[in-house]
Design a protein around this nucleic acid. Structure first.
Length: 423
DNA sequence: TCTGGGGTCCTAGGACCC
DNA sequence: TCTGGGGTCCTAGGACCC
């Protein structure tokens, strides 16, 4: 048996925890650059505010009560996420962090001591008391069914956020699946839902009753797994240790459009620096570096331009200097003047756990001397909290930097931002 | 004026090998 | 007239997740 615990309106709830004055008020959280809505409190949902609506449109709308908006504060959310996970780990033997606000728990055998749903309510209380956040809990014999249960626990308030589907109560599972549209199933997105609907497969129960071989032939092994999971056959297991990353991406939209090569080179250098740091945190070396740049796909009166170029290194590296050099080479292949660029990014691929590789017999390039030591010194300074050092290529406080004009304090991670209680 | 970021997995097709 | 079979590796693109 699996349980899925997820935090209700996670980002919006984090903003509310330290702002009791916002209790029962509509709150939304915006994407980077304060672009669009990515999280809504219960009250904001009731006002009919849709996910993904651009902030400039929402700002112009009139509501019966004022809507409070926040720029996204990932420092705060990551720290609150750790608190939630720590509380769940106190009550469950094996856990897998699935996303910033979701956790799968292995709850096999727990019903020998306590009823599944009673255990769910216990998890809920424990997290609520310890963090101020409310979780919903769905349980089932497979991850997919736990997800469906969790969906239903939100859909019907009478479950009060806790619902268990057990093999013993098959009628309940069928009832639920007959009420769940296919596009609400974990692993079924818009495209596949449309194709399924065209075949007359409308509900989760319809899908569960379709032959796995038919699904494999017309879709893929991924959806076949979903069908099996809906029937209680567990195909996706709990993964306690996250597998090593295969790719690192660092990309961002600009606060203001970029029109000059020099500004773009700075942006690409900055992303390359950040991506290199992540690579060293993963203790990996990479051999493949790609850079992409693009104009806004929404600008109707401009011609769209987007392109990607890659560099392949002979020797794997985790040295920021190598990665910046490769990134700039890649940028030079695709840069075109006279566009208003909206976004750029870098991707690192083809990882190996060490920097050693078979050198080409005729390779004239010498490996960098003491690269690992230099990078360690760099990372130590930047993690020390005492100061920051960086490569000159990225420039100083450029105007295209991300905009976050409604940022909340780092309540849990910065001494000067800690809330003070007064009597 | 203004529309997010970071991942995974699978598949098809081409290059190349014996 | 008529041009193999079986395999691997790589890449690009499409689907999904949060």
């Amino acid at each position: 048996m699996f349980a899925l615990a997820d935090v209700n309106s996670f980002y919006a709830s984090c903003e509310k925890v330290f702002r009791p004055d916002l209790r029962n008020k509509p709150v939304v959280v915006l994407s980077n650059n304060d672009g669009c809505v990515i999280a809504r409190s219960k009250e904001a949902k009731l006002l009919g505010i849709k996910m993904g609506i651009p902030w400039f449109q929402l700002k112009a709308m009139m509501f019966s009560v004022p809507v409070m908006a926040f720029s996204s504060n990932y420092e705060l959310y990551a720290s609150m996420s750790n608190r939630v996970m720590a509380h769940l780990e106190e009550l469950a033997p094996q856990v897998e962090q699935y996303s910033i606000d979701e956790m799968f728990l292995d709850i096999r055998g727990i019903n020998r001591c306590i009823d599944f749903e009673e255990f769910g309510r216990q998890l809920r209380r424990h997290v609520s008391v310890g963090t101020g956040l409310t979780i919903g809990v769905g349980m089932g014999p497979t991850k997919t069914l736990a997800k469906s249960a969790q969906w239903a626990s939100k859909e019907w308030p009478q479950f009060k956020g806790v619902l268990a589907l057990t093999p013993a109560n098959n009628r309940r599972t069928e009832k639920l699946l007959s009420l769940q549209p296919v596009e609400e199933i974990w692993g079924v997105g818009r495209r596949i839902a449309k194709k399924l609907n065209a075949m007359g497969i409308i509900t989760a129960l319809d899908l569960a009753r379709t032959h796995p071989a038919f699904i494999r032939k017309n879709f893929s092994v991924v959806l076949e797994r979903t069908v099996r999971e809906l029937n209680g056959e567990s195909c996706i297991s709990l993964e306690e240790a996250p597998p090593a990353k295969q790719q690192i991406v660092c990309s961002r939209s600009f606060g203001e459009r970029i029109t000059t090569y020099e500004a773009m080179r700075q942006a690409v250098c900055q992303y390359a620096e950040r991506a290199s740091e992540k690579l060293r945190e993963e203790r990996q070396y990479c051999r493949h570096i790609s850079v992409f740049i693009k104009t806004s796909p929404f600008a109707l009166n401009e011609t769209y331009y987007g392109n990607l170029a890659s560099e392949k290194l002979i020797t794997p590296t985790q040295d920021t200097r190598d990665i910046i050099a490769a990134a700039v080479d890649a940028l030079n292949k695709i840069w075109v003047d006279d566009h208003r660029y909206a976004k750029a990014g870098i991707m690192l691929n083809d990882f190996t756990p060490t920097g050693v590789s078979q050198l080409n017999l005729f390779d004239e390039r010498q490996p960098r001397l003491r690269s690992d030591e230099l990078m360690r010194v760099l990372d130590d300074i930047n993690h020390s909290g005492l100061g920051k050092v960086w490569f000159a290529g990225r420039g100083i406080s450029p105007e295209w930097q991300m905009k976050r004009q409604m940022l909340s304090p780092a309540y849990t991670t910065r001494w000067k931002d800690i809330p003070v209680a007064t009597l």
